[in-house]
């Protein structure tokens, strides 16, 4: 069992938990993730590592309740436990594999969208601890959905932008990037993490400027250990598996349209299951969301 030490709301429907997982905390690096399973009947859910404390043996995770299993996380409080919590999974971030000398030569920009801000934080923090500065764009739909701004500001130069202009700069993250470049910033390494559609457009923008761009893919996963093949992606002309080959890939080679289509595979099933969980087994479709009547 993996004890939950803290559970809180970060913003809107974004939540954070601190979980005791000494083996994960001992080895995890920025860029990696965990898979958690709440109880016997729950799904295995890949979750972002936002921070870790090697001495205390703890992991901070951030999640948004979407399906039944993550909605059940909302009932968890300090003292409860995950039955299973495995990691770190995936390869560490490319940046962490480079030497400090190499990194010092780079002008690095992170583009973080929504919950994607969570996996950006440990990378920026790691760079900061190694004496390397970086810029971070935090993008959100609106003011109330901006997360981790304070923590991020301690380790990087932060630019916040909101789609509706309610806070920080106004507009999408891609506009913010172009504005920064127009203001005289220059970048040669970009890491974009957020919804797939955001990563896709970031890559289109950075391609224009010739900036190497790394994205962190979050496709559907089951075991997450390199066995089932559910998380396959097309990168260049090759089939790649996000759980062992990724989650980071060269964004200019990823087939985002395909990845986005594949992500919708279980949406109807998940929608039905969530409604059944919330409303009991009485829901028979017609809500326009679950597809149960189609």
């Amino acid at each position: 069992m993996y004890k939950i030490l803290e559970a809180k709301n970060l913003a809107g429907n974004i939540y954070e938990m601190i979980v005791e997982a000494p083996r994960v905390a001992a080895r995890c690096m920025p860029g990696q993730f965990v898979i958690a399973k709440l109880d016997e009947t729950a799904e295995r859910i890949p979750l972002t590592i936002t921070d870790y404390d090697r001495e205390k043996g703890t992991i901070e995770i951030v999640f948004q309740p979407i399906g039944v299993s993550t909605t059940k996380y909302l009932d968890c409080k300090a003292g409860d436990s995950f039955e299973d919590f495995v990691g770190p999974l995936g390869r560490p971030s490319d940046l962490c594999e480079m030497s400090v000398e190499e990194l010092k030569k780079l002008h690095i920009i992170f583009i973080a969208g929504g919950v994607g801000t969570a996996p950006v934080y440990p990378q920026a923090k790691w760079l900061h601890e190694n004496g390397i500065s970086c810029d971070v764009i935090i993008g959100a739909k609106t003011k109330d959905l901006v997360i981790l701004e304070d923590k991020m500001s301690e380790v990087a130069n932060v630019y916040v932008t909101t789609d509706d202009g309610s806070y920080g700069r106004s507009g999408m993250v891609t506009k913010c990037l172009e504005d920064l470049i127009a203001e005289g910033h220059s970048y040669d390494h970009c890491v974009a993490i957020g919804p797939m559609i955001m990563m896709k457009f970031c890559c289109l923008t950075t391609k224009k400027y010739g900036i190497k761009t790394i994205v962190s893919m979050n496709p559907i996963m089951v075991d997450g250990t390199g066995m089932c093949g559910a998380c396959r992606l097309m990168v260049g002309d090759e089939v790649k598996f996000a759980c062992v080959d990724g989650p980071e890939f060269d964004g200019h080679l990823v087939d985002f349209d395909l990845a986005m289509k594949r992500q919708t595979l279980y949406r109807t099933k998940e929608g039905e299951a969530l409604l059944a969980y919330k409303e009991g087994k009485t829901h028979h479709g017609g809500c326009g969301e679950c597809g149960g009547d189609r």
């Binding site: 083996r23 994960v24 299973d84 495995v86 999974l89």
Partner: peptide
């Protein structure tokens, strides 16, 4: 010991 992925956890 379950949930230990050798190569990653150790």
């Amino acid at each position: 010991e379950t949930n230990v992925i050798v190569g990653r956890s150790v």
